[in-house]
Design a protein around this nucleic acid. Structure first.
Lengths: 199, 199
DNA sequence: TATCTAACGGAACGTACCGTTTCGATGGAG
DNA sequence: CTCCATCGAAACGGTACGTTCCGTTAGATA
């Protein structure tokens, strides 16, 4: 990731030093990646960033807030392409999501975030908000298919999003991100057929 | 749950005092239920149980081990009835699972356990084992339906178990255990129709 | 130019918890 | 009657949290 800065930063006057904020975010991500959630402490981040703890707490009110920031910085490169086939859309979505979680820091960070949300109220609310937003977004995939007649009328798109996300989450949280394409294909095929038949 | 014992227990000689073990397990469950995962510390459990920390560490090697023990003590009262209809079986399974997680300590405990598994290797392995066992068990529901011709030949029963569990997990971990029956019904109906159509 | 102000890194603090060690008392086993 | 593993309690060193001071820095203000 990033090398720890050689020299300590100093104040740049009566205003925030963006270098410090960047260094803290970089350090937080690096610590999370190298030591995992267990090693993710404010002290470790401060050491790594050559920053003072007060500097961190000046800008992030809690450990959960910093974790949330790092998590949101993860750019999502998920495949939301509209292939014209719901099954194919869902397959690409799930495959790319599991792949990204497996091959980039995103998976480790998201795992940490879900874990933190089980003990910290701020993180819990943030996770709920995020999940709601994802549900709506993924649901659009189903909306499109509905317009094409691939999905029966009574189906709630966010319900399908829950199924897909749930399938992904349980794989992430139990270290099973290496599911092969054929299995993913079978899973989405079942859902696609079920959606066609209607609810 | 349990009242803290009025008097401290003493040694009953050169053998383990089962009252202590019981009191510790009870206290651990009570702390987890009342203060959640955030408040679940060995110190808090020891205080609550009027036990010494060494007594806890003599019998449970780590915090994760105690958490695992408490978790496994949770009796599963999940509806695995064979109704003759896969859709109905799955509906009852999901409904009873979400209800139990919502209305008993089991949900809080399992949330904590999933969270712990994201930072503790022992808990992680235990969770993976448990998930595997559950997958096989829930898969039997699908096996039965397969024998009845409700499920196409190529379907992997454990894949269906992943779908159901994933759907339940994401609701547990994002505080959405209050999903109504109609929504659950729609979800399992989609899966049931998809399984009938085949993979 | 002189002063004000807010940011900086660093050090230290008090609290909490971890996992371990030590202690005296207990009471069953040999 | 002696041994000995157990008990609760207390204290240990270590780590991390979140906070408070400190002296330093340099832009903003007058």
């Amino acid at each position: 990731m990033e090398k720890p800065p050689e020299k300590a930063r100093r104040s740049i006057g009566a205003k925030r030093n963006p270098d410090s904020a960047d260094a803290i975010r970089d350090a937080a991500e690096a610590v999370l990646l190298e030591a995992g959630y267990a090693g993710f402490s404010i002290e470790a981040v401060a050491r790594r960033a050559r920053a003072g703890k007060p500097t961190i707490y000046r800008w992030w009110p809690s450990k959960a807030a910093l974790l949330l920031d790092v998590y949101q910085r993860q750019k999502r490169d998920i495949d939301y392409a509209d292939t014209g086939s719901l099954e194919e859309d869902m397959f690409r979505f799930l495959k790319s999501l599991l792949r990204q979680w497996r091959d980039t820091p995103a998976g480790s960070i998201f795992r940490s975030f879900v874990a933190e949300a089980q003990s910290d109220a701020t993180a819990s609310a943030a996770l709920a908000d995020y999940a709601r937003e994802r549900r709506a977004h993924t649901g659009q995939m189903v909306e499109r298919a509905k317009a094409r007649g691939e999905v029966a009328a009574g189906v709630d798109p966010t319900l399908v999003a829950d199924m897909l996300s749930g399938y992904a989450w349980i794989h992430l949280l139990t270290n099973r991100l290496d599911e092969d394409d054929e299995t993913i294909r079978k899973a989405v095929r079942i859902i696609a057929k079920g959606l066609l038949a209607g609810a």
